[in-house]
Computed example of a mutant assay.
Amino acid sequence: MVFNTDVATEVVKYARIVSEAGFTKGTWGNISVYLGDFIYITPSGYPYDLLKPEDIIVVDKQGNKLYGSLKPSSELPLHIEIYNNRKDINAIIHTHPVYSTVISLTVSEIPPIVEDAVMILGERLRVSEYALPGSWELAKNAFIALGQNNCVFLRNHGLVCVGENLHEAFIATQVAEKTAQIYIEALKIGKVIEIPQEHAKVLREKYLTSYKQK
């Protein structure tokens, strides 16, 4: 393989963006891009503010390291599981935002409540079953709960968002955290009124087929 510096630079760029947005603290969270059967992923336990393109690790879809002197993220199985099963996904951002993490502790899903979330993320945003971080069990549980959506909340853990590219995955992260906050605040007031299921399906389909720019 030939190391793609542009891809590695993009991963570093978004690592800093999610850190500056407050979606993760310290060395937690991980980001990857899938390109030509190779996964470019952030290293394990390495501060985002010190990260350089040459620090990004490259592995194949079986997890074999092909480039880099550092260890890949401990959540590599999660990334492999998603890329192996979602051919429409080329980027993954895993973070630990406050409201999304609260959702991961308290409910099994966020129903369709706001239109942008339904369109960008999916009709019902699910929380995966708990498993130890970095395990294949967590990876499989996450993929099951993700389904064809663009986000999944990891039980007692955090948030995973996916997209065709890192920009799309980051927008999904922003919308998921905002939706989590809206849902939590709405529940404080009373009963949450859901978007009718038939309308939610129309909204999601419209986004995927006509609203979203190719």
Rank of each mutant, 00 (worst) to 15 (best):
S104M: 03
S108R: 13
T106I: 15
H96T: 10
A117P: 09
P111S: 09
T101E: 10
S108P: 08
I110Y: 00
N90A: 07
V98P: 10
V118A: 07
P112F: 04
P112R: 10
K87Q: 10
P111T: 02
D88S: 09
T106H: 09
I89L: 09
V107K: 13
P112I: 06
P97R: 02
V118S: 05
H96F: 14
D116G: 02
I110A: 07
D116P: 10
A91E: 05
V107T: 15
D116I: 03
H94I: 07
H94Y: 11
H96W: 11
I103S: 05
P112K: 04
I103P: 01
I93L: 03
T106D: 01
I92E: 09
H96G: 03
I93P: 11
N90F: 05
S104N: 09
P97W: 00
H96S: 06
P97C: 05
A91C: 07
L105K: 14
V98D: 14
L105E: 11
S100H: 08
T101L: 06
P97A: 06
E115I: 12
A117C: 03
Y99F: 15
H94T: 02
V118E: 08
P111L: 13
L105G: 08
S104V: 05
P112L: 12
D116K: 12
D116Q: 10
V118R: 06
D116L: 00
D116A: 01
E109N: 13
H96M: 11
E115T: 11
Y99A: 12
H94C: 08
E109W: 00
P111A: 03
H96A: 12
V107A: 10
K87E: 13
D88R: 04
P112Y: 12
V102C: 11
I89C: 06
A117Q: 02
T106Q: 13
A117G: 14
T106G: 09
V118W: 01
Y99E: 13
E109H: 13
I103R: 01
V107P: 07
I93E: 04
V102G: 03
T106E: 13
I92L: 12
